[in-house]
Design a binder for these strands. Structure first.
Length: 294
DNA sequence: CGTATTTGACCGCG
DNA sequence: CGCGGTCAAATACG
């Protein structure tokens, strides 16, 4: 009960920001992405903190919080079977699920893209038993290039065509790679106006390797909390067309994303060796429409 | 012509 | 052996 105040404060803040965002997006008067991003990031941050607070402060028994079986017990400590390095690495990846719902208010909207600020490359799609729609698998585009371990899977809800479950695996570590040619020794800081977001690589001992990037947020405050997330989420309009269209179509839309943004970078080395942390989040975001392109 | 998607085969785990 | 996940060849895309 002591945390109630802080919790409420965060929630209020989140709500306020959300309202602002919604208003802006509703207007659809060419909102600069920077604004969108920053606001979205703030919202995310606030909400995440709220949730973490709530979870840690009320681990007892959440009233009327049935929740779905999203939180699966993670695999226990397995023996290491060296087979495929990549696959093996997957042992200690964080996994969190975000529920994304598209708003039908989009009229004339063609497709919406969930721009989470990262480029994803689809590498598979499978039908899931018990689920009406297939699940799409995505990996960070730069895994090839920079070894970014991030991946995500998008699964459309069984009934609600606008509801999607996006499960993120691992954290992004990729740095945007804009210039291709580029000069050999001409890379310092990019005059990017894009507001950075906070990415917290957290370990049991907090070995964050946050270089001196531009941090407008206050990592200190957040570092107190235990958390780890990537700035991923957002949604866009989607027109409710034939729900029976291609499932893959929709799933794709959700998964696709092509925009720049950035996240702090973590050391290429993998963190967390035996620390197994599992973050289960269940959130439902509902925003209005905005204009994007696919 | 290079890169992202698609799609079925393949593989490991339960 | 079935399911969920990944690979990889073929294809679409720009």
């Amino acid at each position: 009960m002591a945390n109630g105040g802080a919790l409420l404060e965060e929630l209020a803040r989140a709500l306020d920001l959300a309202q602002q965002l919604e208003a802006h997006l509703s207007r659809a008067s060419s909102p600069p992405e920077s604004y969108r991003c920053s606001t979205a990031a703030e919202i995310l941050s606030a909400i995440q903190k709220s949730i973490l607070m709530a979870q840690s402060s009320a681990p007892g028994s959440p009233p009327s919080d049935g929740a779905s079986p999203l939180s699966e017990s993670s695999a226990p400590e397995f023996r290491d079977q060296d087979r495929k390095e990549m696959m093996k690495k997957r042992k200690t990846l964080h996994k969190w699920t975000t529920r994304v719902r598209l708003n039908p208010s989009a009229a004339g909207g063609v497709e919406g893209t969930v721009d989470d600020g990262h480029s994803w490359r689809k590498y598979g799609q499978k039908d899931i038993l018990g689920s009406k729609h297939p699940r799409a698998y995505y990996r960070c585009t730069y895994q090839n290039t920079q070894g970014c371990p991030a991946a995500k899977q998008v699964q459309r809800s069984d009934d609600d065509p606008l509801l999607f479950d996006v499960t993120y695996l691992g954290t992004h570590s990729c740095r945007q790679k804009p210039p291709k040619g580029s000069a050999p020794t001409l890379a310092h800081k990019e005059p990017k106006q894009s507001p950075n977001r906070l990415l917290l690589s957290f370990q049991s001992e907090m070995r964050v390797k946050t270089e001196a990037l531009d941090s407008e947020e206050d990592p200190a405050a957040i570092s107190s909390l235990i958390g780890d997330w990537s700035p991923d989420f957002l949604e866009s309009p989607y027109q409710v067309r034939s729900l029976d269209a291609s499932d893959s179509d929709l799933t794709d839309i959700i998964g696709r994303s092509n925009r720049e943004s950035d996240s702090s970078f973590v050391d290429m080395d993998f963190l967390l060796d035996e620390l197994e942390l599992e973050l289960d989040l269940e959130q439902s975001f509902q925003f209005d429409a905005s204009v994007f392109f696919s």
